[in-house]
Simulated assay, not measured.
Amino acid sequence: MIITLIILTIIIFLIIIFNKRAVPAFLYHQVNPISNVSPELFEEHLKVIKEYKMNTITISEFYNKEVPTNSILLTFDDGYFDNYKYVFPLLKKYNMKATIFLNTLYIMDKRETEPEIKDNNTVNLEAMKEYIKSGKATINQYMSWEEIKEMYDSSLIDFQAHSHKHMAMFVDTKIEGLTNKNRMEAPELCLYGELEDNFPSFPKRGEYTGRATLIKKEFFKIFKEFYEKNIENKITDKNEILKKSQEFIDENKEYFSIESEAEYRKRIEEDFSENKKIIEKNLGNEVKFFCWPWGHRSKETIEVLKELGVVGFISTKKGTNSMKANWNMIRRIELRNYNVKKFKINLLIARNLILGKIYGWIS
């Protein structure tokens, strides 16, 4: 009993001592009337931050050790137009800072018309359709460089790398199911080249996570023909369908190969260098931080990107960050479905170094 009380006393003491000694980072994507985080909800988050007298800092300020006690990072991935239309005015209203990680393939120079806001899956699918058709993927659902420059010049927003294309790669030839063209998203369209039913669905990860499994596009039509002739409407058991499909895949290994180490490095280096070059050309800043597409991390890719000048890697791993951060993995808390109460609870936990670390371990 005495030992238990001593342990509890020590824990409570540590929690008190380490309160406001962590740097929580929160992750947003879209903020608009049809997304899971509306402008009104986002403003309530900012009011909570103000209520707790927290200091918003950018990722560059964090790295440069410009970190007052009780600091917080607000981060946004991709670069959607609503970040300019809704987020930027609110940040100016409350004089708060943020960092946005950009996918540069989709950003146009100057906006001609204001778009009707769409969900991110629709946005990216439309962009990829145009990319396959014409080689260009700029779309008005993303911010323009003119808008991004305005935000950067305000000194409230830092812009850093999130890959040029933000696409996926196949990582295995073990079939997981079949495609449904009405449910396919941009990464699948990029991999398959078109939207069709009954293509084989294989495991995928973000392009930065290692060597890809390469599949010749003609195989998908060959598989579809085999499936519709020999399996569809003939076999009803799901496991048997997958078994027969896998047997066919294994019999056609000539359509599959594994990317070489040199090919993998070249692909990563080219995509990141393009991402970095375009941001720096348009803003005149220094791109030193990389946010993992899909949140998929790779120790090997960390070493590749460090050779290209990256000093910090931003993840989707939950938890908090010490004031002397682990720059190989900055942790963030995603807020897609958080109401104000949940935001406040997560904020209070994550700004405490001890509670935030425990949160990270159990998440």
Rank of each mutant, 00 (worst) to 15 (best):
residue 2 I to W: 08
residue 2 I to T: 13
residue 3 I to W: 13
residue 4 T to N: 12
residue 5 L to I: 13
residue 7 I to L: 14
residue 8 L to S: 14
residue 10 I to F: 11
residue 12 I to N: 09
residue 13 F to Y: 14
residue 15 I to L: 12
residue 19 N to K: 12
residue 19 N to G: 03
residue 20 K to R: 15
residue 23 V to Q: 03
residue 25 A to G: 14
residue 26 F to W: 13
residue 31 V to C: 08
residue 34 I to P: 00
residue 34 I to S: 03
residue 36 N to S: 10
residue 37 V to A: 04
residue 42 F to H: 09
residue 43 E to G: 10
residue 46 L to I: 13
residue 50 K to E: 10
residue 51 E to R: 15
residue 58 T to L: 09
residue 61 E to D: 10
residue 64 N to R: 14
residue 69 T to R: 15
residue 72 I to F: 15
residue 76 F to I: 13
residue 77 D to F: 08
residue 81 F to P: 03
residue 82 D to F: 04
residue 85 K to P: 00
residue 89 P to C: 13
residue 90 L to P: 02
residue 93 K to S: 11
residue 95 N to L: 08
residue 97 K to A: 00
residue 98 A to G: 07
residue 99 T to W: 08
residue 108 M to A: 09
residue 115 P to I: 04
residue 118 K to G: 01
residue 118 K to C: 02
residue 127 A to D: 06
residue 128 M to P: 01
residue 129 K to M: 02
residue 129 K to C: 03
residue 130 E to A: 06
residue 145 W to K: 04
residue 148 I to N: 00
residue 154 S to H: 09
residue 155 S to F: 02
residue 157 I to E: 01
residue 164 H to I: 03
residue 169 M to K: 01
residue 176 E to V: 03
residue 179 T to S: 12
residue 182 N to M: 11
residue 186 A to S: 07
residue 186 A to D: 00
residue 187 P to D: 10
residue 193 G to F: 04
residue 197 D to N: 15
residue 197 D to G: 12
residue 198 N to E: 06
residue 203 P to C: 02
residue 204 K to L: 05
residue 207 E to H: 02
residue 210 G to S: 07
residue 211 R to F: 03
residue 216 K to S: 02
residue 223 F to V: 07
residue 226 F to M: 11
residue 228 E to I: 13
residue 229 K to Y: 13
residue 230 N to F: 06
residue 236 T to E: 13
residue 238 K to H: 13
residue 242 L to K: 12
residue 243 K to C: 11
residue 245 S to T: 09
residue 253 K to V: 03
residue 257 S to F: 10
residue 258 I to A: 07
residue 265 R to T: 09
residue 270 E to G: 05
residue 273 S to C: 05
residue 276 K to A: 05
residue 284 G to L: 01
residue 286 E to G: 04
residue 286 E to C: 06
residue 287 V to A: 06
residue 288 K to Q: 15
residue 288 K to W: 09
residue 293 P to L: 11
residue 293 P to K: 07
residue 298 S to T: 08
residue 299 K to N: 14
residue 300 E to W: 13
residue 305 L to G: 02
residue 305 L to K: 08
residue 306 K to V: 02
residue 308 L to M: 10
residue 310 V to G: 03
residue 312 G to S: 12
residue 313 F to G: 03
residue 313 F to Y: 06
residue 314 I to C: 04
residue 315 S to T: 12
residue 321 N to Y: 13
residue 321 N to D: 13
residue 321 N to C: 10
residue 321 N to G: 14
residue 322 S to T: 10
residue 327 W to M: 12
residue 329 M to S: 12
residue 330 I to R: 04
residue 330 I to H: 02
residue 336 R to L: 06
residue 341 K to R: 15
residue 344 K to S: 07
residue 344 K to H: 05
residue 347 L to R: 08
residue 351 R to E: 01
residue 353 L to H: 07
residue 354 I to L: 15
residue 355 L to G: 10
residue 358 I to M: 14
residue 359 Y to Q: 09
residue 362 I to F: 14
residue 363 S to E: 03
